[in-house]
Computed example of a mutant assay.
Amino acid sequence: MVLLAGCAGGFGRTNAASPNTPEELESTDKSMHVDLIRKMLDQEQYYAALAHIQQQQRSSGNSDELRYLEAEARRQLGEDAAAEKLYRELLRGRLAGDAYHGLGLLYAPRNLATSIQYLREAAARAPTDARVRNDLGYALLRAGRYAEAMPELSTAVELDPANDKARNNLVLLLMVTRDEEGVQRVIDQAGIAPETVARLRSDAQALQARAAGSGVRK
Rank of each mutant, 00 (worst) to 15 (best):
V171T: 12
G102Y: 08
L200Q: 10
L105Y: 14
H101A: 12
Q56S: 10
D129P: 11
A212K: 09
A81Y: 09
Q76S: 06
A73I: 09
S59G: 05
G9C: 09
A96H: 01
A71V: 05
A193S: 05
P19K: 09
L36W: 07
A48H: 04
G12T: 03
S214R: 03
K85Q: 08
S154W: 14
E158H: 09
T14K: 03
A190W: 08
L103V: 15
M1N: 08
A143Y: 12
F11K: 10
G61A: 12
D80W: 15
A51L: 01
E70C: 01
V171I: 15
D179M: 12
A193D: 02
R210T: 12
M150Q: 11
G182Y: 15
L25T: 03
G102I: 11
G104I: 14
S214C: 01
L77M: 13
T21P: 05
T177F: 00
R210W: 12
E23L: 05
E121L: 10
D164L: 06
M1W: 13
R13M: 02
L141V: 08
S202T: 09
T155L: 04
L66E: 00
A198S: 13
Y100M: 11
P194A: 02
R88Y: 04
Q54M: 09
N169V: 13
A49Q: 10
E72F: 10
Y87I: 10
L106F: 14
A204Q: 01
L174Y: 13
A139F: 07
I192R: 08
T177Q: 03
Y100S: 12
R125F: 05
Y100E: 11
G6M: 04
E65Q: 11
D135I: 02
A113D: 10
P109L: 00
R142H: 14
D160A: 15
K218F: 14
T21A: 03
S154I: 01
C7M: 04
R167F: 13
Q56F: 14
R199M: 04
D203R: 01
P109I: 01
Y146D: 13
T14I: 00
Y47G: 13
D98Q: 14
C7A: 10
N111I: 03
Y118R: 01
A17H: 05
Q54C: 02
E79H: 13
A123Q: 09
A124F: 08
G9E: 10
Q205C: 03
V34G: 00
D164E: 10
L25R: 13
Q184R: 15
R131M: 02
V2I: 12
L119R: 09
G9D: 07
R167P: 12
R185S: 00
G6D: 07
Q76D: 01
A123V: 11
A81M: 03
R75Y: 14
Y100Q: 14
E70N: 00
A124E: 14
E65D: 00
A190K: 10
F11M: 05
A73L: 07
M40I: 11
